[in-house]
């Protein structure tokens, strides 16, 4: 495989509701920041790929409009996935393997605030068996959480502890939305949102954008002192029907990690777990030991711009390698209900 690295990362501050800027306006300064940090002139970028959803924008082909943020004249080679930006990064990684280009720009954006994000996410479910009933994102996550409580020794307090730890980690992340010191027992005294999930078990609603610049081989070494080399990347999916799956495990994550060449030697892991119990499932699926620092950024429980959250996990993990704060990192992204599809990106410094 050709050596490919993340050489720069930038993100917009995650906010509950940005009424002042449209998607292009949120994205433009983030693209500029990532390009400047990469040291690669924009005209030299070989491939551009984005992740977003028309259902959030409320407009068909909304990703075409977003190209204004990168500029598509003179013509550029460009692609889009109607998925989290982590999958746009996967496509860019594959494209860089072709060998004819040396750099790629990956971006993702999403405003969850204009519509009702819980109902919008109902529309990603099976259109015949599920969508007519309108179970929303929190409803199906709650079914998974109960299954986990029933099948394991985990308790609702363990869920609250995950929320408290992520929000505490987020205190050092200036782009996070929910940060601070919370006591797990105090969190537990709140009412259920959809039992057994409480509000703190669920992600905040966020508007945001993120950009990653990737480079191959010598170009990466030339422009970046410590590129975050991608040593393996893979994504896997589970059965379509929620009632066919064992919701208490994540075999697709385990398989993706195996195919991405994961070994036990990891300094940090950024996990895309929008719900507290999902972090517990992912830790098991990945076999992460107590010594691994999980979600130093605060993760999806501190900021959850839908379509961007997974790409941010890769960016946050890569940034720590670029900064010299870690030597090996795992980044995970998820898509679909109850961790249906999972991507694992292994990265190392040098």
């Amino acid at each position: 495989m050709r050596e490919v690295a993340v050489v720069s990362f930038a993100q917009a501050p995650n906010v509950r509701r940005d009424t002042e800027h449209n998607e292009v306006e949120i994205l433009s300064p983030v693209v500029r920041e990532a390009m400047e940090r990469s040291g690669i002139p924009k005209a030299d970028i070989g491939f551009t790929c984005s992740g977003s959803s028309d259902y959030l924008a409320g407009q068909p082909f909304s990703f075409v409009t977003a190209l204004d943020a990168v500029g598509a004249w003179p013509p550029i080679r460009e692609s889009h996935v109607e998925m989290d930006g982590a999958w746009a990064l996967y496509e860019a990684w594959v494209r860089l393997q072709h060998g004819d280009i040396d750099s790629a720009l990956v971006y993702a954006y999403g405003k969850s605030s204009p519509g009702d994000i819980r109902e919008i996410l109902s529309l990603q479910l099976d259109p015949y068996y599920l969508a007519p009933l309108w179970p929303d994102a929190v409803d199906v996550a709650a079914l998974q959480a109960r299954a986990l409580l029933d099948a394991t020794d985990f308790t609702e307090r363990d869920f609250a502890a995950v929320a408290a730890r992520n929000r505490s980690n987020a205190k050092s992340n200036p782009n996070s939305q929910l940060a601070g010191d919370f006591d797990a027992d105090e969190l537990l005294s709140s009412d259920y949102l959809v039992s057994p999930l409480r509000k703190h078990d669920c992600p905040p609603i966020s508007d945001g954008a993120a950009v990653i610049v990737m480079a191959a081989g010598d170009l990466a070494r030339d422009v970046c002192e410590r590129p975050a080399w991608i040593s393996g990347i893979d994504h896997r999916i589970e059965a379509h029907g929620l009632g066919v799956r064992d919701l208490t495990t994540s075999p697709s994550t385990t398989l993706a990690a195996e195919k991405a060449g994961m070994n036990g030697n990891i300094d940090i892991a950024e996990l895309h777990a929008p719900f507290t119990h999902q972090e517990l499932i992912l830790r098991e699926a990945l076999g992460l030991s107590e010594s691994v620092s999980i979600n130093p950024s605060g993760g999806a429980l501190a900021a959850n711009p839908v379509m961007v959250t997974g790409l941010i996990r890769i960016g946050e993990a890569a940034q720590r390698l670029i900064d010299g704060d870690a030597k090996t990192a795992l980044a995970h992204a998820t898509s679909g209900p109850c961790l249906q599809q999972n991507l694992v990106c292994m990265m190392r410094a040098a």
Binding site: E119, P135, D139, A142, L143, D191, S195, P196
Partner: peptide, 22 residues
């Protein structure tokens, strides 16, 4: 497995508290 909805949303199949279940 099941989940309890104490405040049904307008599009939900029942207009009073109910459970989702597999």
């Amino acid at each position: 497995t099941w989940a309890w909805v104490s405040e049904p949303r307008p599009k939900h199949p029942l207009d009073r508290p109910f459970a989702w279940a597999l």
